[in-house]
């Protein structure tokens, strides 16, 4: 808490959380509009100006919908899993350095903590599939489990080379190390590896196999309805927002930018990556499962190791 009065700290926490959750809600609206635009359609534009009230209407609708819990589900796991995804997202929010004086927590092992949180948030997907006791959900969670484990490694390797460059495990120090040149330029390989791995981590197309609609109905959230389903949905988009913020932090120099530095640079970069997530989703077809796995183990991980080696050598002799 770095000596701040508790009240200010709490206000900051609530404010940041509100911003992130609002961004996640509006990411659903953006997803639908961007998808429509890319497919020569218009998208939701009737509810409020430009359809901006659409997410609120959706949430209200889901809130009043009847909740259906199928008889064979595991009641305890079925009940708690939608919460887990939000816990992970909210915990990650605390670590993101939005601006120089706008960071809730800056632990000395922030990067590792973030990796741990992202590893734990995979549990919501895995447990949701197991609790539902349906073949579709089970397949979804099976894929999710393998995918999360596989892509965690290249992600960690990419971050490791960033950590080598910055010489610190604190997120604020990593951003500060990029005050002149963002790591996207000095570490292009790590940047691309991270970008690919983060798509698999957030279960977004082209790596959205855990919820592949065309083959698994809804994947892990097939048996969830009403507000429970909305939690999964909001969790996915919040994950996208957080992931974009992390890309900004690790590779694009956070709040630094041409002109006056500040939180707006962070917002612009994050919003660009949120758009990038949507853009990629509506451009590429879904990969096959074996392709996904092969790509992680045979391309990304060796590349990441090589990248760390070269970075370390340059660090020593450069």
């Amino acid at each position: 808490m770095s000596g701040q009065p508790l009240l200010i700290f709490a206000a900051k926490a609530v404010g940041i959380l509100a911003v992130v959750l609002t961004a996640a809600t509006y990411a659903t609206w953006a997803e639908r509009r961007v998808a429509a635009w890319i497919q020569d359609r218009i998208g939701p534009n009737k509810t409020g100006p430009f359809g901006l009230l659409q997410p609120i209407a959706d949430v209200l609708k889901l809130f009043f919908k009847e909740e259906i819990v199928p008889a064979p589900v595991d009641p305890v796991l079925h009940f708690i899993t939608p919460g887990i995804i939000m816990v992970g997202v909210i915990a990650a929010t605390a670590l993101i350095p939005f601006a120089e004086n706008l960071t809730l927590a800056d632990p000395p092992v922030g990067v590792l903590l973030l990796l741990g949180i992202s590893a734990l948030s995979g549990y919501s997907v895995i447990l949701a599939g197991m609790a539902s006791r349906t073949k579709y959900s089970l397949f979804g969670s099976l894929r999710a489990a393998a995918q999360v484990i596989s892509y965690e490694i290249p992600m960690a390797l990419a971050i490791a080379s960033v950590v080598l460059m910055a010489g610190s495990l604190s997120l604020v120090d990593i951003v500060k190390a990029q005050s002149h040149l963002p790591f996207a330029i000095t570490q292009p390989v790590a940047f691309i590896i991270y970008l690919i791995a983060v798509f698999a981590e957030t279960n977004r197309a082209p790596f959205d196999l855990p919820e592949a609609e065309s083959e698994l109905v809804g994947g892990y959230h097939t048996e969830y309805s009403s507000m429970r389903f909305a939690w999964f949905f909001a969790g996915e988009y919040a994950h996208v927002v957080i992931a974009s913020a992390l890309i900004t932090t690790f590779f694009l120099g956070g709040w630094y930018g041409p002109g006056p530095d500040g939180v707006w640079w962070f917002a612009i970069k994050t919003l660009f990556f949120v758009y990038f997530f949507l853009w990629v989703r509506w451009t590429y077809p879904r990969t096959r499962y074996d392709q996904l796995m092969k790509f992680a183990w045979k391309v990304l991980i060796p590349l990441g190791l090589l990248n760390i080696l070269i970075t370390a050598l340059i660090k020593i002799w450069g």
Binding site: W37, I38, R41, I42, W279, T283, Y284
Partner: peptide, 21 residues
Amino acid sequence: GLWITLKHNVKNVAHNTFTVQ
């Protein structure tokens, strides 16, 4: 692929020629 979808996106933000509301 990204370039094609981006073109469609930009075009449709400005003016959608297909949809009849």
